[in-house]
Design a protein around this nucleic acid. Structure first.
Lengths: 215, 215, 215, 215
DNA sequence: GATGAATGAGGCTTCATTCAT
DNA sequence: AATGAATGAAGCCTCATTCAT
């Protein structure tokens, strides 16, 4: 950010610009983001945009940062509850968090994540992976007997990316998909839990009943 | 394609255009693909490009089609050998195929896949998923006793996307990564195999020895 | 024309190129005329087109020449009959000839005339005007007592252009027009006849009856 | 117009763009109008052009609108005087107005009207025809005894188009023409007046004297 | 003679960024 | 600080014409 917005008014301006950028991304896609359009939706002039952001890239970086922040908050909010749950329940819980996260803000996060390679999402993803690895370690400590003892760096990476991109792809599928969100969560949590508790008997597949299937 | 390249010369031109597009994508990224640049690298004029491709999109579609073709070939070539292997070996084999595939052509495939949502890759991915699901079914029939009997539609989807995007992310990581290709393959194959043979004791983790680590 | 097509085959080729150009003009408008498209519709290659026409302009000039030729023929065919008629009947007859002329070939002539200033139609129009002036003189001689004696050069010019462009505009109107072809012909012939037989009582307006109105 | 030019500076810019477009049309013809050329002549960059006009078509539409406006003004300015005149004087007056109109701005109007079918002139022409029909009605009311009572819709159409396109053609003729502007006006006004006052004795032709001939 | 692939100037339009007001 | 008009490079695509085969 070009200038530190110490004053409250500036803070609001920055916020409204990021918010406007988010709306454009969510509604029209990343391609449609132009500095003028963002400024318009924020109700200010382009000049003001450049007062606070060195360039378009910086604006998008801020948007991405906000996304990272929200993701972290979402995970942290769920963490205490999940640490106490059994492996599969924990995974399931995380998946629900992820689904909720993607559902927020009209698919903004979906669109951003789809463009992870263009935006500076890589660093954020990496940090998130590290964070999740840490969480997994903590979880392992709390469930010493049930779990494999030493989560490898690769494991967090795999789990994170498998989950995130599989969900991303699922949400990008033309509706109706060939399988429900329920089924996806089922299979995915089964797979992830299986990685963490190798030998253990995994809960049997849920019965697919119309009432429990969503989406 | 706008015009059917019946003559051999035309065939070569079309080929060299697609090839040139591929080089640009691999070296400079998808964003850098402009019709003029591609034409230049192919050693022809823009006009010639438009003789064979209705527009830029069509050119990229051809490039994607070529990628799909190559992927199919790679999988089909490995299939007979893999069907006979045990679950984890099979998964490992598939992963090697995938790594090889991504390694080809200077990372062209990596860059294309990164942009799956902009290119018309979705259909290809879907077909590939269906294909893999079929393979999984065949594999399940051949290994009735060891495997869960009914691969769900969701399962193929999950496996494919987990593998593909995890590899994609790995290959997009700044070198050196925190873990080796070996480790990634290890954990990934462990996870995938685990999904297919739930209760079975999975082979223990390989010892990480410097000599076996690549990349 | 670049080359005199002495041989019959060449004659046919030239003819089919002009014909093809005409079809493109009539169906898609003058703007849509490209050398390649014309060649395609004629079933030959562009190269062949340039064998017989120095450039696109020359091709269109040939098309225009054909139009002029047809117009001359149409007028000459009707002339003997018309010379014997009374003034208003003569004018009426000419108008019918003109309407028929425009109706031919899917509106080709309409489209060509609309573009008289771009094509080399001016010369043709001029010659046509001279021709008509001559016809008017002949007619005047045959009807000495009824007509003004000395058709001025300006008069032929006016009559021709008034008729041609008024019809052209009428045919370019979005259907349905506010008045019928019948009414147009009525008023137009009344006006023209009035110019030629100034003091004479002009035939009263026809009763407009549904059955006599066309278009 | 893309953006409303509220500020005076913008107003001027828009004006100068339209003006520049007009100059290009008048000097080089409609075909020669390119966005860059117009911008250059207006002394600004293409980008500025697109700030105020969605596309080239919109720019030309503005030019046409200006023409319509000027025509309306010219007619309205002359109307009060003409309504009081006798039929032939009125027609003559209108013709002078038309000649003046076409003479303005280096033949811009001539070139625009030549392209009535490409530009959105049709609507303007139509409205003008309606307007003139109205004028004719008013004139008829004021001269009940001398005129035919009921101008038909077709009549306005015919008169307008005959006059406009005949003048257009005359002005497009290579100089020197075979007859003078005087002669043209003479014959044309005689014809038009004749339509409106069918039985009345029309004023005899003016003597063509060198001194009264112009152009 | 015939073919049609190849050329490339040139047209339209967008948009990140700057800077005078 | 805010504005928003102005810039112009750069992208996509067309098409009249040529010329090697």
């Amino acid at each position: 950010m070009r200038k530190k917005p110490v004053q409250q008014r500036s803070q609001q301006l920055v916020e409204s610009l990021v918010e406007a950028a988010g709306r454009v991304v969510a509604q029209d896609g990343l391609e449609a983001v132009t500095t003028i359009r963002v400024a318009e939706r924020a109700g200010v002039s382009v000049g003001s945009l450049y007062q606070y952001f060195a360039n378009k890239e910086a604006l998008l970086a801020a948007l991405v940062a906000r996304m990272n922040e929200e993701l972290r908050r979402a995970v942290d909010a769920a963490a205490p509850r999940l640490v106490r749950a059994g492996p599969q329940a924990m995974v399931r819980g995380l998946l629900e968090v992820a689904f909720d996260f993607f559902g927020q803000r009209d698919g903004l996060h979906t669109e951003l994540l789809r463009n992870w390679h263009r935006l500076d999402i890589q660093l954020g993803l990496h940090r998130f992976e590290q964070h999740m690895l840490e969480v997994m370690r903590m979880y392992a400590l709390a469930h010493l007997r049930e779990l494999r003892l030493d989560p490898q760096p690769a494991q967090g990476f795999i789990v994170i990316n498998s989950v995130v991109f599989t969900l991303l792809r699922y949400l990008s599928l033309p509706r109706p998909a060939l399988f429900s969100r329920e089924q996806l969560v089922d299979e995915l949590s089964r797979m992830i839990a299986g990685t963490m508790v190798p030998g253990a008997p995994v809960a049997p597949r849920r019965r697919a009943s119309p009432s429990t299937r969503k989406r």
